[in-house]
């Protein structure tokens, strides 16, 4: 059995861990509120952008269209943009995204495709480096610091566009976790290039989608010009959206994880204290018996 001194120091360490986790939980909760507001505020833009692109894309189908819309005609080189958090201690948040990406890397490799990975966030890189270090072309760190900004997302989008123009990939997919609530983030796989119209349901209003189907738009100045501007912009918006969702998701996941940790520490503390008191009592009883029996022997 552990000695009293050992138990005392265990209890002290569990208590201080509990203090740290509960502080982290509080911080995450405060950050979550902001991040969530930001993520929700950006949703209308992304949704309307998608709607607009959807109607444009369906209108110009059959025609040649820009390369971003129609693709390169090949599917040989896949670029996976894996957006995760920079920091850990947020439950399975990073692991879930990384697992999804890894599964796809393995699948694509098995199909004989060339895979390239661009990591946004340190934790994704750390997870994928084991086993797939050869395919990671770069890692962007601290993108969402102090908070996700549209400029940063635009930079990432510009970089993707430059790579696409150079013919460095054929298909680009973005991995991130969509924020549902503090306890649920859904790993989402979104194809960025070539543009894939999201289902009507994803934009939130089905009635709208139906209404839009029958509508024929006038384009000013013309379809190609608009598409040429809209498509790169959409890329930046999607990246921005992913960063925001991730940011909110990360804080949510951290809050939940730290809440659990705090609770577990409390439980452990209770158990250890009980054990400590028992041991103490046992020691006292033992001493008493020793004294009494010593007396009797005299």
């Amino acid at each position: 059995m552990a000695s009293l001194k050992e138990l005392r120091s265990r209890i002290a360490s569990v208590k201080s861990t509990q203090k740290i986790t509960s502080a982290m939980k509080m911080v995450a909760a405060a950050k979550l509120k902001r991040a969530q507001e930001q993520a929700e505020a950006s949703r209308p833009y992304a949704a309307r952008m998608a709607r607009m692109l959807g109607s444009l894309a369906s209108g110009s189908r059959g025609g040649q269209g820009p390369k971003l819309l129609s693709g390169t005609g090949k599917q040989d080189v896949h670029l996976l943009v894996v957006a995760t958090a920079d920091r850990g201690l947020c439950g399975a948040f990073n692991a879930n995204i990384a697992r999804e990406a890894r599964r796809d890397i393995e699948r694509l490799k098995a199909e004989g495709k060339t895979v390239k990975v661009l990591c946004i966030g340190r934790k994704g890189r750390d997870a994928l480096r084991r086993g797939h270090a050869d395919v990671i072309i770069d890692t962007l760190e601290d993108v969402s610091k102090p908070r996700p900004s549209f400029e940063k997302s635009d930079e990432i989008a510009q970089r993707l566009l430059a790579m696409y123009d150079e013919g460095e990939f054929d298909v680009c997919t973005l991995y991130y976790a969509q924020f549902k609530s503090a306890i649920s983030q859904i790993v989402t796989r979104q194809q960025l290039v070539p543009f894939a119209a999201p289902e009507a349901e994803a934009t939130g209003d089905e009635a709208q989608a139906v209404e839009n189907k029958g509508m024929v738009y006038d384009y000013e100045p013309d379809e190609e010009t608009i598409l040429a501007e809209l498509l790169p912009r959409n890329l930046a918006v999607q990246v921005f959206n992913a960063l925001l969702e991730n940011n909110a998701g990360e804080q949510g996941a951290r809050m939940t994880a730290m809440d659990n940790a705090t609770r577990n520490a409390g439980e452990m503390n209770k158990k250890l204290t009980l054990l400590y008191n028992r041991t103490r009592q046992a020691a006292i009883t033992k001493e008493l018996i020793e004294i009494v029996s010593a007396k009797e022997a005299m």
């Binding site: 930001q38 505020a41 950006s42 209308p44 833009y45 309307r48 549209f150 930046a236 918006v237 921005f240």
Partner: peptide, 9 residues
């Protein structure tokens, strides 16, 4: 009428 920027509505 709706005016949206990437940050918010």
């Amino acid at each position: 009428f709706e005016l949206v920027s990437p940050e918010k509505l």
